[in-house]
Every structure is written in structure tokens, then in C-alpha cells.
């Protein structure tokens, strides 16, 4: 048995969602999201819990969770900075933004600061091409990025 459990609120949401799909299998993505919001990442225990809930194997859940890049299969920093690296952002200067963030936080993209405050990730097209360069900061988009904008944002959090 898994030690992980949905919070009361998430359990309620899960039961509500069950009514909205022809098969409970559809709940894998919504449930993985709930787990990630609840814990910050998706542990093996949580996958075992979910497999049990959906009537499938933990291996199946892991196969799903590892396919989608937004699911964190290990703990990440409190602030997740994901800078878009695809063409329109690159043409509008995302590389300068990336190196500025790296210098400022002292870690490279793909890494987390030692105090577990910041995780830097390069991501593919965010769909912000008209307001490039762009990044997502936890759940929010920050667009038309400039070095000043980055300073303003990070200096309040450091």
C-alpha cells in the first residue's frame, strides 16, 4: 500500500471528475496534475496510489507520467523558471536572457539552486511568439522579457 493520499479537496475533485468521462482511465492526467500541485512533484508512492485508484499498474502510470515533460518526477525548486528556446524567442534574444538568468542565480539551465529555491529549465515553444522572448514562472507567463524585467522579478525573490 502506498503512503501517499489525495488531500480531501483533491479526493473530492477526483470523484467529481469521474462523472465527466466515459472511462476512469481519462483521469490519469488530471490526477497527476493534482498530485503535482499537492506535493510539488510526483513520487513513486504517488504513482502506486494513482495506479490503484485507476485500476491499472504503477508501471503504466510511470509510462504516462514520464512521457509528458511538465510532470516533475523529482523534487524541484520553489520557483520554476522555464525559458522558451524555440525560434521566435531565439530570434528576439532569448539566449541573452538565458545567460543573464544563469549568471544571476549561479546555476545552469537543467539545474536547481542548492537552497532549492530556483529550478531553471529550457522549454520548447510556449506559444508566446508575438511577445517574445518569453518564459513561464511557476504557473504564470512573463513576456517581452528584458534583462531589467528579469532583475526586477528575481531581486524581489532572492
Amino acid at each position: 500500500m502506498s503512503e501517499f493520499k489525495f488531500s480531501e479537496e483533491n479526493e473530492k475533485k477526483f470523484q467529481e471528475l469521474l462523472k465527466r468521462y466515459p472511462d476512469r482511465a481519462s483521469l490519469s492526467l488530471p490526477s497527476l496534475w493534482m498530485i503535482q500541485y499537492q506535493e510539488g512533484w510526483i513520487s513513486e508512492e504517488a504513482m502506486v496510489f494513482l495506479a490503484d485508484k485507476l485500476g491499472t499498474s504503477p508501471m503504466d502510470i510511470q509510462g504516462i507520467a514520464s512521457f509528458y515533460t511538465m510532470f516533475n518526477l523529482e523534487p524541484i525548486g520553489k520557483y520554476h523558471i522555464q525559458v522558451c528556446k524555440t525560434l521566435s524567442c531565439k530570434l528576439c534574444g532569448s539566449e541573452k536572457i538565458k545567460s543573464h538568468i544563469e549568471n544571476k542565480l549561479g546555476v545552469k539551465f537543467g539545474e536547481t539552486t542548492k537552497d532549492m529555491k530556483f529550478t531553471l529549465t529550457e522549454v520548447e515553444c510556449l506559444g508566446s511568439c508575438g511577445t517574445a522572448p518569453a518564459m513561464s514562472f511557476n504557473d504564470d507567463y512573463v513576456e517581452n522579457l528584458t534583462v531589467e524585467k528579469i532583475d526586477e522579478l528575481l531581486d524581489t525573490l532572492k
Binding site: 492526467l29 509528458y68 511538465m70
Partner: peptide, 12 residues
């Protein structure tokens, strides 16, 4: 008619 919003998770 029911309408349900379903979020993906990062896969082009």
C-alpha cells in the same frame, strides 16, 4: 450539453 476542460502536460 456538458463541457469539460482537460489539461495536457507538455507534449507537442
Amino acid at each position: 450539453l456538458d463541457l469539460t476542460l482537460h489539461r495536457g502536460a507538455g507534449a507537442y
